[in-house]
């Protein structure tokens, strides 16, 4: 069972900032793919991405980035597929995926852990996230 893990040597650190469904879906696809390929994934939620993980809002329509336009939104709806929250759930099932909330964003939005979907494992500061991210690059979405 160790061959589909890489001992965390090559983690994928993702910082999620945007709270629109298109960007969250793109991030979730990266997370689930990395988890399937044995990479440790660490997701850090800031600002509007954190807001989208609120338990009472996670399943609601979060819109799309401005560049989507009406045609892009229609294409997204036509394509369908699984919701990004379900993809993150799958990522956690198949691999080592930790999702944390930025403590500063929690404070700004007036949130406590009980307000968030159980997908979120805890909250932490940026230094703690960077320590876990290792020496590689960070993907900001």
């Amino acid at each position: 069972m160790t061959r589909d893990r890489d001992d965390g040597r090559n983690p994928l650190p993702l910082v999620l900032f945007s709270g629109t469904d298109d960007r969250l879906t793109a991030a979730a696809v990266l997370a689930v793919g990395a988890a399937a390929m044995g990479r440790r994934v660490h997701v850090f939620l800031q600002y509007w991405a954190l807001d989208a993980f609120r338990a009472d809002r996670i399943a609601k329509d979060h819109g799309a980035a401005p560049e989507a336009g009406p045609e892009g939104r229609a294409a997204m709806q036509r394509h369908g597929g699984q919701h990004w929250s379900e993809l993150f759930r799958q990522a956690k099932e198949v691999g080592e995926v930790r999702i944390t909330a930025c403590a500063r964003s929690m404070e700004m939005l007036g949130l406590s852990m009980e307000d968030l979907d159980p997908l979120v494992d805890g909250q932490e500061g940026v230094a703690s996230f960077l320590l876990a991210a290792g020496d590689g690059g960070i993907t900001f979405i």
């Binding site: 696809v29 689930v32 793919g33 399937a36 394509h79 369908g80 597929g81 699984q82 099932e93």
Partner: peptide, 13 residues
């Protein structure tokens, strides 16, 4: 009919 990465995830399961 499932979009990426649906079929892969089904296989892994």
């Amino acid at each position: 009919g499932m979009p990426c990465p649906g079929p892969l995830m089904s296989l892994i399961g």
